[in-house]
């Protein structure tokens, strides 16, 4: 099966203007992690800060455009991995190893498909 690992972290740590050794270190760890995943990694990307996000919302057929992310929460979606794993336990094991800067969460979501 394929799973998306959606990474939620506090943007005040990785967000705009947060260059520096800490972030550099995190990027390094993601590169390491990607190497470790090898063929298990199907895809993925890091996302720019939510300040760069624009949301198109459809309500009762009417579309409006908003600045900012879909949801204003303490932790924001900052990136994702698309992985291949035999089952949920294997996907959770990989999710536990996703590098985080500090506190955060990794949501494990199965990807739609023929299986």
């Amino acid at each position: 099966m394929q799973y998306a690992l959606l990474i939620y972290e506090n943007e005040s740590i990785f967000g705009p203007g947060k260059a520096g050794p800490k972030l550099q270190h995190a990027v390094g760890r993601h590169i390491e992690f990607t190497k470790e995943l090898g063929a298990k990694r199907v895809g993925g990307a890091g996302l720019k800060a939510t300040s760069s996000a624009t949301t198109v919302r459809t309500t009762k057929g009417k579309q409006t455009i908003h600045d900012g992310p879909f949801a204003e929460t303490k932790e924001q979606l900052g990136g994702f991995y698309l992985i291949e794993a035999p089952d949920l336990d294997a996907a959770i094991a990989i999710a536990k190893k996703v590098p985080l800067l500090e506190d955060g969460a990794v949501e494990v979501r199965p990807v739609l498909g023929p299986g």
């Binding site: 099966m1 089952d87 949920l88 336990d89 294997a90 959770i92 094991a93 494990v108 199965p110």
Partner: peptide, 12 residues
């Protein structure tokens, strides 16, 4: 979610 139909492996 793909919960495995196996007994959990050692690490889990």
């Amino acid at each position: 979610a793909g919960v495995p139909f196996e007994l959990p492996a050692a690490p889990f």
